[in-house]
Write a protein that binds this DNA or RNA. Structure first.
Length: 157
DNA sequence: GCCAACGTTGGC
DNA sequence: GCCAACGTTGGC
């Protein structure tokens, strides 16, 4: 299969790039995703080494870094932990409903690339992220989209 | 803080 | 199987 590229959202109040930086190997299991489409991408399509754009939602929404898939899809144990806010009683260790991948930080952007700025780039007009009402937290991006955004970040010195 | 858009649930 | 009601996401 051709190289795949991804964009993954996180609410920085929950888990931000600064949290990711502090993790061992700057790697984190991407737990807590509770959307079937996003789960299917992680379970079925993401491969180790796939490039990922890391996105902060909320205030000043922006792409903040590049990252890599560091582990293929595997069961998300928070789903059967009653103490977790992402607990789902339908899930169990022997009956997985939810999956996650590991994400390793690659390079933090010197300056975040704001969503508002992405909207100004004609090349990015078709991006899933920019679609009205988009709520997916894990989504594919094209290679052209990925490289366009990385170049914007490199220029932003 | 508001609200549009979306996904899920549950009654029928 | 339909669809109204509800809860959540997330931009503004």
């Amino acid at each position: 299969m051709a190289q795949r590229y991804w964009l993954m959202k996180t609410d920085p109040d929950e888990f931000s790039i600064d949290d990711l930086k502090k993790r061992p190997n700057q790697t984190e299991p991407w737990d807590g995703v509770r959307n079937y489409q996003a789960r299917n991408f992680m379970r079925d399509d993401m491969r180790i080494g796939d490039p990922v754009l890391l996105y902060h939602s909320g205030k000043n929404p922006a792409v903040v870094a590049t990252a890599r898939v560091a582990a293929r899809g595997y069961p998300d144990p928070t789903a059967w932990n009653p103490a977790s806010k992402h607990f789902d009683p339908r899930s169990a260790p022997d009956k997985t409903v939810w999956c996650m991948v590991d994400i390793r930080l690659e390079k933090e952007f010197l300056r975040p690339i704001l969503l508002a700025d992405l909207r100004k780039i004609p090349m990015l007009k078709g991006m899933t992220l920019l679609r009205k009402g988009n709520r997916l937290s894990v989504m594919p991006v094209t290679g052209r989209e990925y490289h366009t955004i990385v170049k914007m970040a490199e220029k932003n010195k």
